[in-house]
């Protein structure tokens, strides 16, 4: 029983990391209508930027994380502005954009490898003893991860429901054409979406790095399909669905450890993804509808 609670706690941590990442991917898909296969590398870049600011430029580790998060957002904007937007403006088929982001993922993962090398590094956050919260065990860092995720999700909710620009993002998710005839500058909203998506990816990469304690250039890419599982479970393009998907995947993968060898954690996420595609494609109706 106590093992179950314990793994529930770990599940919450994983779900928090996953929620940050999944919402970022989902938001960007909703607005632009194609999947970014290089998203995993965005996570990697976020973590490495934070590490670099801290280790090479001696910025305070917490401040490094904030700056790195923002820089990853800027990176998302730049990627859209100089690579993806030109492709979609040229009227290239959807297939091309997918291959472009796929190619970008190889480029970026090797760029990271070239700059930072293949070795494991870790962010200099204080190591702590775990303490119990009810029947669960957390370190202060892990509690911070959960708190960050909750705060960011709330902030996102406010962005999407209370601000003009956030509402415009939702409007574009509904219908780009109608957004345009309403006078919304869709290019600007798209740029902003990439900024938010990039920031979320960067932040997710950083908290994933903290949670794993050490990381190497492939770590974000390896996490990508777990993000996919969460996004698809919640319905592609729906940020709130992505949060729910992250919660389900996070808890399911960690709690499966009670019954299965923990090496099979990721397989649980994969199994859920496959089950979802086979049995409950309703979660994906929106995606099919947007295909036209």
């Amino acid at each position: 029983m106590s093992l179950l609670f314990l793994s529930f706690g770990f599940g919450l941590i994983t779900a928090s990391v996953l929620a940050l990442a999944a919402v970022g991917l989902s938001l960007q898909f909703g607005v632009t209508n194609y999947i970014n296969f290089a998203y995993g590398e965005f996570l990697t870049i976020g973590a490495y930027l934070a590490w670099t600011l801290n280790h090479w430029l001696h910025v305070n580790v917490w401040l490094s994380m904030v700056i790195a998060t923002l820089l990853t957002g800027v990176f998302g904007v730049v990627t859209n502005q100089f690579l993806l937007r030109p492709f979609s403006k040229k009227g290239k088929p959807l297939l091309f954009l997918l291959i472009v982001t796929f190619g970008l993922s190889l480029f970026l993962s090797n760029l990271v490898l070239a700059i930072w090398g293949p070795d494991f590094v870790n962010l200099d956050v204080p190591r702590q003893q775990p303490f119990s919260v009810g029947p669960m065990l957390f370190t202060a860092n892990q509690l911070a991860i959960i708190a960050i995720a909750v705060v960011v999700m709330l902030a996102l909710h406010l962005l999407l429901t209370r601000t003009e620009i956030g509402k415009a993002m939702r409007a574009m998710s509904d219908s780009v054409d109608l957004a345009q005839v309403s006078g919304i500058d869709t290019d600007r909203i798209t740029s902003f979406t990439w900024l938010v998506s990039g920031c979320l990816a960067g932040l997710a990469g950083i908290v994933l790095a903290i949670n794993l304690t050490s990381f190497q250039p492939a770590f974000g890419g390896e996490f990508l399909f777990v993000i996919f599982a969460a996004v698809i479970l919640g319905g592609v393009g729906s940020p709130y669905g992505a949060i729910l998907g992250a919660l389900v995947i996070g808890l399911a993968t960690e709690m499966s450890g009670v019954f299965l060898d923990s090496a099979y954690k990721n397989d649980v996420a994969f199994a859920l993804l496959v089950l979802m595609l086979l049995l409950r494609p309703q979660g994906l109706i929106r995606m099919a509808g947007k295909a036209a």
Partner: peptide, 22 residues
């Protein structure tokens, strides 16, 4: 079997990436 029934190419791409990782 999992991915080809859906028409959109994204589905298959996602499934292949995931299968590869698994």
């Amino acid at each position: 079997l999992v991915a080809l029934r859906r028409l959109r190419s994204d589905y298959l791409a996602i499934v292949t990436v995931s299968v590869g990782a698994i």
